[in-house]
């Protein structure tokens, strides 16, 4: 049966990869200083292949803008978009709730709380990794509390899950506000970081994100067929030979890890993990083997377009977290209405 379907899927994946590459190149050219795409390719090429001849006619300032200013930011946006969308697929798949994403579950707030704590307390046990580490601890603790709050008689209630996420998120936000109040001078950095910002992206951040997202993607793809079957519920998936309890923990920890690293580096960027899996489910269907790569690619493209819009198109730079919330919030309302009508996945 599925050979035509698979062909269609390969075509779609290739299309998304091509679109991502085009978006990256176009975004690199956009901004205060317009750069032609051929120049961008030559600068990147000369750097990657160590052949200075390729870009001999290009001004050094363009080198600097492309390699040190724009690309780290652009690649950060790409990787964070992929990571958040990936986490969204996992949370929605495991918790069987189309409204679940790192933001609505309060995981992002938990990570932000941990990271703010590390920033303010000036914790540097592990050098530059102490903020991501504390973000991860915050994310895991929040995940545990939210799931515990919404579990009755061993069953996670879908209705109370998001409610618990919102409540815990609100408490954590208050905690973050309190820390900001205590922060004095550093408060401006924290406020801007919390709203989500790619402005201070670095190549070392890109590498950390790259490793994290690759790890998340591999783990999720490895368990993707099990994740499909887990959508039938505990009893069914257990009786179909899936190690439900073990895989659920592995995937939830992985998703929280990916979320925590994204938040630690760029602040809270909401709704990407909610919107993207939804859109992709309409296009590729519910099969996680197709949904996971498609969502990661689409998340990367969407967040990059959003960031480029605020960086190079809008007259003032709106924080990216504010922009995604402004677009994603109404989308959440639509899904919520459809879910109430019980036809979110027709």
């Amino acid at each position: 049966m599925p050979s035509t379907v698979d062909k269609k899927n390969i075509l779609l994946t290739c299309g998304l990869v091509a679109l991502l590459v085009c978006t990256v190149v176009m975004s690199t050219g956009m901004g205060y200083m317009q750069i032609h795409w051929q120049d961008i390719l030559r600068v990147i090429g000369s750097h990657v292949f160590h052949s200075p001849d390729l870009s001999i006619s290009i001004e050094p300032s363009i080198h600097y803008v492309v390699l040190d200013v724009r690309l780290p930011r652009i690649l950060t946006a790409v990787l964070v978009g992929a990571g958040l969308a990936l986490s969204g697929v996992i949370y929605q798949g495991i918790l069987l709730n189309p409204l679940a994403d790192p933001y609505t579950l309060g995981i992002s707030s938990g990570a932000a709380f941990g990271a703010s704590f590390a920033l303010l307390a000036n914790l540097s046990l592990l050098g530059q990794f102490s903020t991501p580490l504390f973000a991860f601890i915050g994310a895991i603790a929040t995940l545990f509390i939210v799931i515990r709050l919404s579990t009755f008689n061993g069953v996670i209630s879908a209705q109370t899950l998001i409610l618990s996420g919102v409540i815990v998120g609100a408490i954590l936000s208050a905690g973050i506000s309190f820390m900001k109040y205590l922060a004095d001078e550093q408060v401006a950095i924290i406020i801007f970081w919390l709203m989500g910002s790619f402005g201070s992206s670095t190549w070392s951040g890109v590498l950390l994100l790259c490793a994290t997202v690759a790890f998340g993607l591999l783990i999720t793809l490895y368990f993707s067929r099990d994740l499909n079957i887990m959508s039938l519920g505990n009893r069914s998936s257990d009786s179909l030979g899936v190690e439900t309890a073990k895989i659920r923990i592995i995937l939830l920890l992985s998703a929280s890890f990916v979320t925590a690293i994204c938040v630690a580096l760029t602040g809270i960027i909401g709704f990407i993990g909610l919107i993207v899996p939804h859109l992709m489910r309409y296009i590729v269907g519910p099969d996680n083997r197709k949904l996971i790569p498609a969502s990661a690619l689409a998340g990367a493209i969407l967040l990059l377009i959003a960031d480029t819009t605020t960086r190079a198109v809008l007259p003032i730079e709106v924080p990216i977290g504010v922009l995604t919330a402004l677009i994603g919030g109404p989308f959440f309302c639509i899904i919520f209405r459809q879910k109430q009508k019980g036809r979110a996945y027709e």
Binding site: L96, S231, L232, S236, S239, Y345
Partner: peptide, 27 residues
Amino acid sequence: HLALVPQEYDTGFGFSVEEVVLMGRHP
């Protein structure tokens, strides 16, 4: 060795009938 038809079940995020029956071959 053992298959279960449970009393309560989810049908997942909108899989097709054929896909759900195929999940029986997962093991």
